[in-house]
Design a binder for these strands. Structure first.
Length: 552
RNA sequence: GCCCUCGUAGUUCAAUGGAUAGAAUAGGAUCCUUCUAAGAUCUAGAUGUUGGUUCGAUUCCAACCGAGGGCACCA
């Protein structure tokens, strides 16, 4: 639609004698009185907007208006209805992420995303829920736009945190793994002697030189992964590959050693191998420490290559907390020097922290909310709310799970990526207003109406159409444009805000109109409109990772 | 000290350089014998400070004030 209008405007300004056509901006005005679409082209060209408007002749519009220098377009109802008729399960999909090959054939862009990334031996906390919500949503948005997406979860199964956990477990067998980690981490900072022991242990873990430690290690990793799997299932995320730090460490180390010869890296204090970021306006980081163990930096260089070997991607996204934004710049710059092809394809998406109003959480001090306990508590709240309804135990469980996950995902995705999310537990379980359950409720309501229509044998039809379309029809038509915007900006919150507004629109429509009504000649049309609403909601909610429910 | 990010209603968030800065919450007032009230309708309140660029600035630039993150062997 926007594209069509742009072409029409381009033609008109050519006709008034402008030779250099600028980039034409068409927007959906915030104020309804300013039309369905609007352009500021006349102001940019410093031309008389009336002159341009007069050249525009198209039956797409029922009215074109000039106001304050803007040209406002009012789309004809007929055209809107034509669009509504086209809404099906593919509505909103596009081919923006297809690539034209030199021989003219077309293929999907290969995109690999890396997100969630919890560390075995540690807790899966709500920060991981955040990374998961963002990564999963972006994955789905890319897929919707024609890309072939692979999902990766990169996990730290070596490094100091493992040593801390194993050390804690050795000192106290009764501790659970995350507790053992917290204990070890505390001792590491508080006690010089413990620090020494843990550092020793870290080397043994890395070299796999001690049988007993290996056994403990295997046991801990297995238990952790089992625990994570349960959560992924709930979150409806299926990773194509789990990649571990232990798999990428060697390759990373080799890459750095190679780079040392070509002078990308250099020897620093205590013979650590470092990258001087200052040459690029960044800071210095250690890639191989004085013990000869590759750090996170070196491992990331290995990881990029392993990913590419598994899947020769066109684009790679790494979703992590924004506290490593600066780190990532340095690492990427080093990659630019030793693996330029991969560096050019690599992007970092740093999200904010999930904070609790009362303060920062940390798995080191044990002051955290785990992903499991948060989802569990939300589920209990939902069950309490629906226990009197006529649902089977199984249905109850499904609803509770979908609503709980939806509520969390919504509160994460409702703002732009990058800023901290203040997670107010009480608000997120209130389910009022802007919330995941609001979307799910609106959808379930519409579904319920469609069931009633079926019972009363009112089939959808566009044979009889009301004289004037409402805001609901107009909003439904905007879905494809919202997808494009969310896709190019890589911001799921555009979809979320749109769906919230759309649901509100439907709820208003629902309040004002009786949809299933045998005595109403427009009932079949209203049923068709309700169905179109459910299709758009379902497509949109899928992109946010929020499940739709037939009943709730 | 240096680098990065961010300051918008009481609170939590929106706003490709555009029109009267939007929502949601919290407060007040309505609406269930009628398709799910987890809903709808009405009602008040904000761009940290000072300059600059522009026809036009919440948005771009500079300075200041304030918050968060990062800066060599953690991830």
């Amino acid at each position: 639609m926007k594209q069509k209008i742009k072409k029409i405007i381009a033609k008109a300004i050519k006709e008034i004698g402008v030779e250099k056509i600028p980039e034409i901006l068409v927007e959906v005005p915030k104020n309804l009185e300013h039309g369905d679409y609007s352009t500021n082209t006349a102001m940019i060209l410093k031309k008389n907007p009336i002159e341009i408007a007069e050249k525009i002749k198209s039956d797409l519009f029922k009215k074109i208006e000039v106001k304050n220098g803007f040209i406002n377009f009012f789309v004809s109802d007929k055209y809107i209805i034509e669009n509504i008729k086209k809404i099906n399960k593919n509505f909103g999909k596009n081919n923006n992420l297809k690539i034209k090959e030199a021989n003219g054939s077309e293929r999907s862009r290969r995109i690999i995303l890396d997100y969630t990334d919890p560390n075995p031996f540690k807790e899966f906390h709500i920060g991981h829920l955040m990374s998961n919500a963002i990564g999963e949503s972006l994955s789905r948005i890319f897929e919707f736009q024609g890309a072939k997406v692979k999902r990766v979860c990169y996990q730290g199964d070596v490094g100091m945190h493992v040593a801390k956990a194993i050390w804690g477990k050795i000192k106290n067998k009764n501790l659970k793994w995350p507790e053992a980690y917290a204990f070890g981490a505390k001792e590491f900072t508080d006690n010089e002697n413990s620090k020494k022991e843990i550092t020793e242990l870290n080397k043994k873990v890395f070299e796999k030189s001690d049988k007993n430690i290996n056994k403990l290690y295997d046991q801990g990793k297995k238990e952790s992964l089992k625990y994570f799997d349960k959560i992924y299932k709930k979150l409806d995320t299926k990773f194509d590959w789990l990649i571990f730090e232990s798999q990428v460490a060697d390759l990373g180390k080799k890459t750095v050693e190679k780079g040392l010869k070509s002078k990308v890296f250099e020897k620093g204090e205590n013979s650590a191998i470092i990258f001087k970021g200052e040459k690029f306006g960044l800071h210095t980081r250690v890639f191989i420490n004085s013990e000869g163990i590759p750090t996170y930096e070196a491992k990331d260089l290995g990881l990029a290559q392993i990913k590419y070997k598994k899947y020769p991607y066109d684009l790679s996204f790494v979703v992590t907390g924004n506290e490593i934004n600066e780190y990532f710049k340095v690492m990427k710059q080093a990659m630019q020097e030793v693996l330029p092809d991969l560096a050019n394809k690599t992007n970092h998406i740093g999200h904010g922290m999930l904070r609790l109003p009362e303060g920062k959480m940390s798995s080191r001090t044990g002051k955290i909310i785990t992903g499991e306990s948060l989802l569990g508590k939300l589920q209990e709240m939902v069950i309490e709310k629906i226990k009197d309804e006529d649902f089977s135990k199984k249905e109850q469980q499904e609803i509770a799970e979908a609503v709980a996950v939806g509520a969390v995902r919504y509160s994460i995705l409702k703002q732009s990526i990058g800023g901290d999310v203040i997670y107010d537990f009480d608000k997120s379980i209130s389910f009022d207003g802007d919330s995941g359950p609001y979307l799910q409720y609106s959808f379930a309501r519409a579904k319920s109406i469609l069931r009633k229509a079926k019972q009363e044998k009112i089939n959808k039809s566009f044979a009889k159409i009301p004289n004037e379309v409402s805001q609901l029809e107009k909003m439904l038509c905007q879905f494809p444009e919202i997808i494009e915007k969310a896709g190019t900006e890589k911001e799921p919150h555009f979809i979320l805000l749109y769906l919230t507004e759309l649901a509100g629109c439907f709820n208003t429509y629902y309040a004002k109109n009786k949809i299933v009504d045998k005595s109403d000649e427009f009932s079949a049309y209203k049923v068709a409109l309700t169905e179109a609403f459910t299709v758009v909601m379902k497509n949109g909610m899928h992109l946010l990772g929020i499940k739709t429910l037939e009943k709730m």
